[in-house]
Amino acid sequence: MPRIPSSPGPYARAWRRLQHDRTGMAMLVFVVAVALVVILVPAVITIDPYKQDLRASLLPPGSQGHLLGTDHFGRDLVLRMIDGGRASLSLGLIAVTIAVTVGGLVGLVAGYRGGAADRVLMRLIDVELAFPGILLALVIVTILGSGSEKLTVAVGIGGIPRFARIVRGTVLATKHELYIEAARAVGVPGIRIAFVHVLPQVLGPVLTIATFGMATAILAIAALSFLGLGAQPPAAEWGLMLSDARKYLRIAWWLAVVPGLAISIVVLAVNLLGDAVRDALDPRLSSGAD
């Protein structure tokens, strides 16, 4: 006789499905490992990614004491990659957090209130959508001035429309569910319905979009730093390191290849993780067996 399983919540079930997804789990482990390395290594041992040693400049990978070689100032590439990774990943995370918070609130208000609030907010979002991605971030950086934290705000603002639309769509779909009506019938105040009963429904799609948004944000931050609008030298940031390395491409390829590969691999891993999260949260979409 089959054992009747206790009914876990939808998110517990999604987590179980994710655990069965080999690619997804591998990518999750990889992303967490990268995050741990870039956070823990500077915390455990004191590293100085700015220490120059001009006699040991442009050493190739595998040199004594410099696993990935050194740059044109003799700064160790491993340490700079770790320091830069922390900047790239944390800024990406902050940008996504800004986008989720603002976009989520806008979407929730627009979807739940409806009427004039909906029309005004969604037209504003449409206006923002008219500007192509990076270009919008460029404009905001122009207004705010360059620098890592301003760039993060710019990329975060650029991510708002996606979240606003997805949250609004989900809220509209759940607003007319029976249990919402029941809650309203027993006199639960509107704001409590919005945050306690509607918001959990939104969490799934938002988590999926946020994972993809994280990849986009890391890429956008690297691209804008590459253009010289983000972190300023001598700070280590993957996009900035790539931009610096461009001048030495013919004599020191590793300076460009290492940060370039790091950006590509991390963005790819986060994207694959996003795929897995989407499949886990919405099994109807995935073609594979549960």
């Binding site: 990076i134 270009l135 950086v141 253009l227």
Partner: peptide, 29 residues
């Protein structure tokens, strides 16, 4: 098309082409 414009900003910087992307970056800086 939006991606294309955004991409042109980066590509024109990398290969030092004189285009609208380069113009935008120079103007911003």
């Amino acid at each position: 098309l939006g991606q294309l414009v955004a991409g042109s900003v980066i590509v024109e910087t990398v290969f030092a082409r004189q285009g609208i992307g380069q113009l935008a970056i120079d103007a911003i800086l």
